[in-house]
Design a binder for these strands. Structure first.
Ligand SMILES: [Zn+2]
Length: 504
DNA sequence: CTTGCCGGGGT
DNA sequence: ACCCCGGCAAG
């Protein structure tokens, strides 16, 4: 039924899928062939990455593009999964799962994810970016020359890396038919950026393994081999391969550190309206909306709480109650704002207040607690009102882009970049309908949001928001400008590619 | 139905 | 490289 339409187009052969092994967990593999059961049912022969074993499945048993998605599956504990953690894909093991909240154990911490955010296959994108972006960035940032074979380097992930991830493409049912990275059954020593990654991987998985064993079951006291195939550990459980090449090891997907650069040069958002707009791809990819680590390594006697700070120009209001903050913003700053509910735009989300306050987590010491309760962390000026140092802005991303990091549409000489419509005909405008009337606020919102991805560098208190834009909250050029103004969309949108202007 | 956008194709 | 678009997943 739902199995394939896409299959008709591209052959399913070779498609990466995950299939259930006898232990009930899913293991990655590729479709090797298809056939039809005597009863007329289509079945797929899957060759597992782990050891090349093949097994036949019905489409309903598979997870992958064209098949089911994990959302319709119950992951068993011990299931290996991939999630985006701190902007990059990491491998983890399911510890438990209730409803759609999955508790995943990473190398040394445990995080929770919506089932939705969990992948059972390595994401397509990561495979791609990872070996181009990773290469690039690691080149720049990695201290180690690419010729250190057995560099041991302590696993640094989870520290606080500002990931480059130009954009985050998660979800997707789960799978990824990456035509590249063919499976080479052996330790794919094909990528050159493999140097440290291999060791890293081993380290990580070993760590994960150990943890798993410790916290799960006392299976093998020696080495956690067969944790994933606990029972019997079928002679060749596809995934039982810890040390084996295991394609699960994310081959080229090194874990090389991301560039420590990024000092998030946010020019002061001295106005809700014209804070320097990112000249395009949301420069310092804000990680705010993105992933957060549910558990910081230092969770201890330091409790944390959220504080909401008003970011309205002169206002310094701080509160630790979200609703109070929203009230404040709404009543103080957004009062009398009619909130145009234009006809064609059924933009039912008017949570505009959201854009005028930041929410961050501050750690409070039991002693400071009370104080913090009423004053909630001084609002360090260094954080929000950074001196307008136009310095360096990452800015690598999509090709096109002139780089005036000033307000693109405010500068007269700026002809046409991707960032925003070159000129902003404040008076009368485009042949529009809905946009025209409320673009003002639209822009405002976006501008505001984009210009204050707040704290990402470890210095200031972490901002955890995990607002997980639920799709309907997402607004890209198309939705923002409408079909009528297609020419105002960023190039990527025009080409039906990932939007480069409104990244989230 | 609409949005976002991947993957593939054309020039 | 630039551009276009089929078709899909998610809503
Ligand atoms: Zn766009």
């Amino acid at each position: 039924m739902f199995s394939s339409r896409r299959l008709a187009k591209r052959s399913i052969i070779g498609t990466r899928v995950c299939a259930p092994w006898s232990d009930g967990r899913f293991y990655p593999g590729q479709i090797q062939s298809t056939s039809t059961w005597p009863n007329g049912e289509e079945v797929y022969s899957v060759i597992f990455d782990g050891d090349g074993a093949t097994k036949t499945f019905r489409d309903v048993d598979l997870i992958g593009p064209g098949f089911h998605t994990i959302t319709s599956t119950a992951l068993k504990r011990g299931q290996k999964v991939f999630i985006t953690h701190q902007g990059r894909e990491v491998k983890g093991v399911v510890r438990m799962m209730n409803d759609d909240d999955v508790q995943i154990e990473l190398d040394d911490i445990i995080v929770h994810r919506r089932l939705e955010e969990v992948r059972v296959l390595e994401s397509r994108r990561s495979a791609r970016l990872q070996d181009q972006g990773d290469q690039d960035y690691s080149r720049l940032a990695d201290v180690h020359p690419p010729s250190e074979p057995g560099k041991k380097r302590t696993v640094s992930h989870v520290i606080d890396v500002p990931i480059p991830a130009p954009k985050q493409r998660r979800s997707k049912g789960s799978a990824s038919p990456s035509p590249e990275m063919e499976m080479s059954p052996h330790h794919g020593a094909k990528r050159r950026d493999e140097e440290d990654s291999y060791d890293n991987i081993m380290d990580e998985r070993t760590a994960a393994m150990v943890l798993t064993t410790l916290s799960c079951s006392p299976v093998s006291p020696v080495f956690p081999m067969g944790i994933f195939t606990e029972k019997g550990s079928s002679p060749n459980g596809p995934g039982s391969s810890i040390g084996s090449s295991g394609v699960w090891g994310m081959k080229g997907s090194s874990g090389s550190p991301s560039p420590p650069q990024f000092s998030l040069s946010q020019s002061a958002p001295s106005g809700p309206v014209f804070g320097s707009l990112p000249n395009d791809e949301g420069l310092s990819m804000d990680s705010s909306s993105e992933e957060e680590e549910d558990l910081q390594p230092k969770r201890k006697r330091m409790s944390t709480r959220m504080v909401f700070k008003c970011t309205w120009p002169g206002c310094e209001k701080v509160s630790n109650i979200r609703s109070a903050m929203e009230h404040h913003v709404r009543n103080e700053h957004l009062k009398g704002k009619p909130k145009p509910a234009v006809s064609s735009d059924s933009d039912s989300s008017d949570h505009e207040e959201e854009f005028y306050y930041t929410e961050e987590e501050v750690s409070v010491d039991t002693v400071t607690r009370t104080f913090a309760d009423m004053y909630t962390s001084s609002q360090d000026p260094a954080e929000e009102k950074l001196p307008p140092s136009p310095s360096h802005i990452p800015d690598h991303d999509y090709p096109k882009k002139s780089s005036p990091m000033s307000i693109p549409w405010a500068s007269s000489d700026n002809s046409e970049s991707d960032g925003f419509p070159a000129s902003f005909p404040s008076t009368s405008g485009f042949p529009v309908s809905s946009w025209q009337s409320n673009n003002q606020s639209r822009i405002t919102k976006s501008a505001e949001r984009l210009s204050k991805p707040n704290s990402i560098t470890g210095s200031s208190p972490r901002s955890i928001s995990s607002h997980k834009k639920s799709r309907s909250e997402v607004k890209k050029c198309r939705k923002v400008y409408g079909m009528e103004n297609r020419d105002m969309w960023c190039t990527q949108c025009k080409w039906k590619k990932a939007c480069s202007r409104f990244m989230d």
